[in-house]
Amino acid sequence: MNLFRILGDVSHLLAMILLLGKIWRSKSCRGISGKSQALFALVFTTRYLDLFTNFISLYNTVMKVIFLLCSYVTVYMIYWKFWKSFDSENDTFRLEFLLVPVTGLSFLENYSFTPLEILWTFSIYLESVAILPQLFMISKTGEAETITTHYLFFLGLYRALYLANWIWRYHTENFYDQIAVVSGVVQTIFYCDFFYLYVTKGRCQGRVE
């Protein structure tokens, strides 16, 4: 465990709590892509199947449970509790364009052809593109509430910090997880455009146009 990874996990947790808090306080999920949140719930479900079979550390187990809870509660609030405020007409990204290639690739390019390993690989590939429906929705509506931009900032920051974690682990432990690193680079690249917007336009109050 190193500082980059802890900061990355905290940033990830903060992003999820920011989003949950925003939906809960405003009693609305306007501007939030339910599809992205559903994909994140799928990412955690397929990645954390080893939750009860492979104990790594208390931290690891607790964080996995928290991440699973946050993602499922968020999906519940979008599609059930506050479904009236969900603007599905703007959340139109075709998920099959993500799920089909990601599934295919996880069968082709993995570390070992076992169910758990293929599901883990699927979750890594899926996570790198799971934010696309949300970014697509923002580009379609042309705006995002400030809290949503903070959510996206910390979500993008988390994987960027993981990249630093992998560089650190490569130099200190000679650790190298090729699938996670390549996917992490792709995932962070998708946020670059948003990071630029966040920094340049983040100062205007209320909304980022």
Partner: peptide, 10 residues
């Protein structure tokens, strides 16, 4: 394989 068998990261 290059990755870690127990995937100790979140």
């Amino acid at each position: 394989f290059p990755g870690d068998p127990d995937h100790d990261e979140l």
